[in-house]
Simulated assay, not measured.
Amino acid sequence: MSRRRRTMSMQFKEQLAKDLGFYDVVKQGGWGSITSKEAGNMVKRAVEIAQQHLAQQSMNQQK
């Protein structure tokens, strides 16, 4: 089974890093330089945003 890659666009990842306050680390050292905690926070925030979008779509369809 192949592994999926790039489920998030680079622009979205950069925006998440900016919002979470570690984009400067990414700019200086690349994505490999962030901590696992920062990566986890980024994924957590991405999931939150996805859930908000799904809830909003669901509400729009019910109208």
Rank of each mutant, 00 (worst) to 15 (best):
K37S: 11
F12T: 10
K13L: 15
A50M: 14
Q52I: 05
R3T: 12
K44N: 09
V25Y: 02
Y23D: 06
Q56I: 03
E38V: 03
Q57D: 09
K27P: 07
R5F: 06
Q62N: 03
V25K: 13
S2D: 03
T7M: 08
T7Q: 06
R5L: 10
Y23R: 01
N60F: 07
V47F: 03
D19P: 01
I34W: 01
V43D: 00
Y23S: 05
M59V: 10
S9R: 08
A39Y: 11
K13C: 15
E48L: 11
Q62M: 06
Q56P: 00
Q28N: 14
Q56F: 09
E48R: 05
S58C: 04
S33M: 07
M8H: 10
E38K: 01
Q51W: 08
A46M: 04
Q56H: 06
D24I: 12
E48D: 12
S9Q: 05
T35N: 07
Q28M: 14
M1V: 10
G40V: 01
W31C: 05
I49M: 13
Q51C: 12
D19L: 06
M59Y: 03
F12G: 01
N41R: 12
D24C: 11
D19R: 02
R4D: 03
N41I: 04
R6L: 13
A50V: 13
R6W: 12
Q15C: 11
M8R: 09
E48W: 03
R6D: 14
N41H: 08
A55C: 05
N60D: 13
F22W: 03
V26G: 02
K27H: 05
M59L: 15
Q56R: 09
S36E: 12
Q15H: 12
V26I: 11
F22L: 09
A46Q: 02
L54M: 12
K44G: 11
H53W: 11
G32N: 14
I34K: 00
A55E: 10
K13N: 14
I49T: 07
M42H: 00
S58I: 00
A39R: 07
H53I: 15
Q11M: 10
H53M: 14
Q56D: 11
V47T: 07
K44S: 13
G21Q: 02
M8E: 07
M42C: 08
